[in-house]
Design a protein around this nucleic acid. Sequence first.
DNA 1: CGGTATCCCTATTGATACTG
DNA 2: CAGTATCAATAGGGATACCG
Lengths: 105, 105
Amino acid sequence: MVNSADTFCPVTRSAKILGSRWTSQILRDLLLNDSRRFQQLQTSLVGIAPNTLSDRLKMLEAERIVERRFYEDHPPRAEYVLTERGRALGATIRAMRDWGNKYPD
Amino acid sequence: MVNSADTFCPVTRSAKILGSRWTSQILRDLLLNDSRRFQQLQTSLVGIAPNTLSDRLKMLEAERIVERRFYEDHPPRAEYVLTERGRALGATIRAMRDWGNKYPD
DNA sequence: CGGTATCCCTATTGATACTG
DNA sequence: CAGTATCAATAGGGATACCG
């Protein structure tokens, strides 16, 4: 949980999103690919359980970072794309990646 | 925990550090102030328990993001400062802050 | 002052089976 | 295919008391 002081810190709000496991990888995939299917994400994020992926996508949808496009075909189809808010997180993801690359270990 | 695939993703390594609670605030304080005492941090991070602050500082020290300078005076004194690695995280913190400010809610 | 030592709680994550 | 339901494990975080 996060107390009320945290709630008003812009850094903490970003950390809350980027800190939960798998989210940074989901964002990385969507930044690179524009659109991804549920299965594609599950394949790319080796080891993620379907319920966890579902939870994470719902959280990102609730935060209006990803948009879910669902088509009731047979078999059904779902596509996830970044919103403008989501694409704007690219700068942070890149800063994180740059730091991680510069200081491996 | 983090699996082996995660370990090699630079974004994930950053997320591991920035994702745990209080770390982004600790870094923010140290980016603004050069040097902080244990008590100063505890006062600034309203609501943090001393063991949690201690854990977080040890983790940041293990990651060589902060340096601990301890003086055996009476009473004893400890100062925490960012290393070069730590200061380099400033770019990420700023990107997170900018995103959080641009998209409040 | 600058922490440790304990104990506890619950949020997060995951494995597995199943459904429209 | 795209998820949900259920149940279990554990790690993260916190409250409190105490120590050198």
